[in-house]
Design a binder for these strands. Structure first.
Lengths: 206, 206
DNA sequence: TAGATTGTTAATCGATTAACAATC
DNA sequence: TAGATTGTTAATCGATTAACAATC
């Protein structure tokens, strides 16, 4: 919606800028230049300025960028000021690790429920209710679900993701080793550990 | 080492070709064209042929590619025929999930040990021995460790990764939310879930 | 003021796409 | 043979880098 299309490369660098600005904030550094950012993140200063200028002019000539202000701007651009309700589909090891991970709160993403085919095996994961997979439809229909986290087996991942997208979920975070893509119906990020491991092995031998 | 430098984009597509060829093999399909591959993976046929031709001519004019042969070639290119010993540093939820994950065997990567600061809490994870972090140096010095999987807290990740690289480990698979980079000393793949989640939220609002 | 650094325009570089001769 | 499809060369497109006027 609105404005020019931002390339995937630029989108991928935004969280890196954000993370670096957080570090500076912790260190009580309140001023930074595109050159400093570029050196910290292995980019060029031009690239940093080009990236940021996609969203507006956040700096000041001769001075650079105010750390707190730029961080707040990127936080807003990324959408981290909005609250998001998430559910986890698949209560295996990865699903459990994700339910447990406390880091999502800083992104304002809150896990509200976990769904699993075998509910008896885990009644509750770190305070999050675990429901039987059969209740997924009803839950998604009756609650506002912004993000569905897919951590089921590869074989079921596509089916279950298609289902929740059909029920209106607009964002899928997929941990199954397949590439999901919903076109304009929903956005998706794939965390494909298997592909990452293969890339690592490839690079290790070169 | 040897040959022209392959771009990161090409390397990232190799596992996708491999995965698709595996699927075809399961379906007993023994022939495929660049057009078919491209349609399955949302690429162009040109791109598929360009990518593959970086490594040699695996196809036949008028016919296409033999599935088994191409799969074997890509498996070889990726280095999946070589055995790799891995250790996991950090026995928290993610470390446990990784120790448990059986999928690495198909990449010939085997987890031989887990290291954790608090050994008493877990004596053994899915048959893999858990050692105290204090034994890490000695272990790496006395065993062939090809891959170190980093699943400790962000704060310790850089330090512990630098340590094992200094001890000779040439491949780091990093799950801590920082970008690690060892230049020519070691290769590295970062799985940054936090960045992925931010990208997802960004895209969800656009 | 002089020095520093932005935002933006232009130049370069690399990756993707198109085209096609070779040939199975 | 005629049709299909490769591998590769050339053309296009987009992303990165360089340059610089504006100005704090």
């Amino acid at each position: 919606m609105g404005g020019k299309q931002i390339s995937e490369n630029v989108i991928s660098r935004l969280p890196k800028y954000y993370r670096y600005l957080q570090e500076l904030e912790v260190k009580k550094i309140n001023r930074v230049s595109s050159k400093q950012i570029s050196e910290a993140l292995n980019l060029t200063a031009s690239q940093v300025r080009q990236d940021l200028s996609n969203f507006g002019g956040f700096g000041q000539q001769g001075y650079g960028y105010d750390v707190d202000y730029l961080k707040a701007c990127i936080r807003e651009i990324l959408g981290l000021n909005t609250f998001h309700n998430a559910i986890i589909i698949g209560g295996g090891r990865i699903g459990q690790a994700l339910a447990n991970y406390k880091g999502f709160a800083s992104e304002n993403v809150y896990v509200r429920a976990v769904f699993d085919i075998n509910v008896s095996k885990v009644a509750k994961i770190d305070g999050v209710d675990v429901y039987d997979m059969a209740e997924l439809d009803a839950y998604v229909s009756n609650h506002k679900v912004d993000v569905a986290i897919i951590s089921v087996q590869k074989e079921e991942a596509k089916k279950v993701a298609e289902k929740v997208v059909a029920l209106g979920v607009k964002a899928i975070w997929n941990f199954a080793p397949i590439d999901l893509n919903f076109g304009s119906r929903a956005v998706c990020e794939n965390i494909n550990m298997s592909e990452s491991l293969m890339r690592l092995i490839y690079k290790a031998k070169s």
